[in-house]
């Protein structure tokens, strides 16, 4: 058991190392210095307090979207629709943010709650269809991503504004940005959302590991038939899992709407927060702590990558590295096999 656990922790670490090595090889092949490239990456992520602020800002929605994917995974569901849930959450948060003028203590929680509700509703649809009609959640959520994108654009243009391409900025009482924080990080876009993200991670851990409901959710993920036989309501757990997952994703959207940007504009494509959340959850082994760590890694990589052109390396190198890391995590059978071979040789 303990050997198994060690391997489970080793696999993501080995995958990350393999991914970074592959990135270095690619840089070598194209005539860049990997040392310079990764140095630029490091500087771009942690070089000074401004970059650290930017990195933390990027990590914030990643934690939440990672939690969303991971939570559904634990119940045996693949929520590829986090992207759409992020978009509707973002929209709802900004809508509340611009429509009202309330004291902060009411306004901010209300806007965040609206985002969570919107995301939850967007997760409820595939959950219901899966539970009642056995429709595969992957396809429904993919379809709902596009639906969310187009509906959000429509609402921004025709309902919140009059034919404009972006909303007003949210009222100060609904903003997650704090002046002292902005000034302290030399005017980075960092905001208070990181606290919320960490609280959410703790909540997920508590809910899954320490409550009866969490036990049921995990049981359904392990074996639906056994759970059903043991008297658990599988359908209800499936819906609940998607609703909670959607709520996490909605709050991730609120981070962008109330924190990073403070508004929402008409989009031609996806935010990618949701899709990157899949990578975060996979690398994090679908546990709360793992997600926080993986979000830290991917957030740093993404922000640091923006500094890589200084060493001449195109930013997209990091996308290749991230893709390879997922690939290696997915192929963990290969790593397990190699590790077991390695052990035998050692004996």
């Amino acid at each position: 058991m303990s050997a198994n656990k060690a391997i489970n922790i080793l696999i993501p670490i080995i995958s990350v190392l393999l991914g970074l090595i592959a990135g270095a090889i690619i840089m070598l092949v194209f005539g860049y210095s990997p040392v310079e490239g990764y140095k630029a990456l490091w500087e771009g992520a942690f070089g000074d307090i401004y970059f650290i602020g930017e990195t933390v800002r990027q990590i914030t929605p990643y934690i939440l979207s990672g939690l969303a994917v991971a939570f559904a995974f634990r119940t045996g569901l693949f929520n590829i629709g986090v992207e759409g849930q992020v978009i509707v959450g973002w929209l709802a948060a900004v809508w509340i943010g611009v429509a009202f003028d309330l004291p902060m203590i009411v306004h901010l929680p209300l806007a965040i709650a609206a985002a969570a509700l919107a995301g939850a509703f967007w997760g409820f649809i595939p959950g219901l269809l899966k539970a009642k009609l056995r429709v595969h959640e992957v396809i429904v959520t993919i379809m709902l991503n596009y639906t969310a994108l187009y509906i959000a654009n429509h609402i921004i243009r025709n309902v919140i504004t009059e034919q404009k391409d972006r909303t007003e900025s949210v009222a100060k009482s609904a903003s997650l940005q704090a002046e002292w924080l902005t000034e302290w990080t030399q005017y980075s876009t960092m905001h208070m959302g990181i606290i919320l993200a960490l609280v959410a991670a703790f909540l997920m851990w508590f809910l899954l590991e320490k409550t009866t409901r969490g036990f049921e959710l995990r049981a359904v993920g392990f074996n639906q038939h056994a759970s059903n036989y043991a008297g658990m309501n599988v359908d209800r757990n499936i819906i609940l899992s998607m609703v909670i997952s959607g709520a996490f994703a909605g709050i991730a959207g609120a981070m962008e709407g109330l924190g990073t940007f403070g508004y929402m504009s008409v989009r031609s494509g996806f935010t990618n927060i949701g899709f990157d959340g899949i990578a975060v959850a996979l690398l994090g082994g679908n546990t709360a702590l793992g997600v926080v760590l993986a979000a830290g890694l991917f957030g740093s990589l993404k922000v640091g990558a923006l500094n890589m052109p200084l060493a001449g390396v195109p930013t997209e190198l990091v996308d290749i590295v991230v893709a390879l890391i997922i690939f290696f995590v997915a192929s963990s059978y290969m790593i397990r096999w190699l590790l077991s071979r390695f052990k035998k040789e050692g004996k």
């Binding site: 693949f78 590829i80 992957v138 899709f275 899949i278 990578a279 996979l282 996308d319 290749i320 991230v322 893709a323 390879l324 997922i326 690939f327 995590v329 997915a330 192929s331």
Partner: peptide, 10 residues
């Protein structure tokens, strides 16, 4: 599914 997602990113 995961491998497919990786293909898309890659």
């Amino acid at each position: 599914v995961v491998s497919g997602v990786a293909i898309n990113f890659l």
